[in-house]
Design a protein around this nucleic acid. Structure first.
Lengths: 139, 139
DNA sequence: GTAGGTGCAAAAGATTTGCAGAAAG
DNA sequence: CTTTCTGCAAATCTTTTGCACCTAC
């Protein structure tokens, strides 16, 4: 994979971004520094960067694809009410290894955990200031 | 939520399906039994059924949305090479609780684990018959 | 009876692709 | 040099929506 000016730029903007931009947002982030770049190029690069593991594709259930740099390692949580996506800098130990998928015959390469819940703002609006889970923690 | 003939039918076909059909595939599954149903209706119902937790939306990084019934509880693994999606009837205990997301201020409602790796067929083609992970298990 | 649901068709969005010229290695 | 990548624009694919008519409750 060649490291073109475009690819470097896209990766750079993605690392700087605190949010989880869509392809179109990446396009807008990059244009000021390279006005003639095309949206198609952005899509092609986002695909390749994620195929090579340098970034992650996030779908988080609905709407256009979002992208995020992989470092530092983290997971994501999405508000079921307003759709906001935040990072979870997972401290604790989720041990996930080959043995979890052995029965399937697959060779495990990676995994992704996507949480969903209510963001602080929506909790307040709901009048549920303290953490009283209202449903069991499973999808 | 009313239980219309359409909704019942869609849910029924989805429970029977061993695969993870796209909206369009669900449409095709349902049409033999209800020829005048519209694709729009299928989309609207899949959305509502997943909002109410009766089915799950799977995005699995790329392509159109896929849908799956929620029982029995399971996760999914997707082949990074050919795109095949299979079920992981997770035996072991992944303990994920509110404490994992406390710092974020969110109230945890649920989570979803998506694995990816090489399916048995692609492993063979790769000449890697036994489980020798080639990269670290992370995205 | 009425709020929510449906079919149809068109619109809106998101992503992919063909091609000729550019540029990385 | 050769191979991969780019810009552009058109094509394709997916999903959403407006509207008038239905139907579950």
């Amino acid at each position: 994979m060649r490291m073109t000016r475009q690819r470097k730029l896209i990766l750079d903007e993605l690392c700087k971004a605190k949010s989880h931009p869509t392809a179109d947002e990446v396009y807008k982030l990059v244009r000021p520094r390279m006005p003639r770049i095309s949206l198609g190029t952005v899509y092609r690069n986002l695909d390749q960067l994620s195929a090579s593991g340098q970034i992650v594709k996030l779908t988080m259930g609905g709407g256009p694809m979002r992208f995020d740099s992989t470092f530092p390692q983290h997971h994501h949580i999405r508000c079921s009410k307003c759709g906001k996506v935040d990072d979870i800098i997972s401290g604790p130990n989720i041990k996930i290894g080959q043995e979890m998928v052995n029965e399937s015959g697959y060779e495990l390469v990676g995994y992704k955990i996507e949480f969903h819940g209510l963001c602080p703002r929506c909790r307040k609006r709901n009048g549920n200031k303290e953490g009283k889970p209202q449903s069991s923690a499973r999808n």
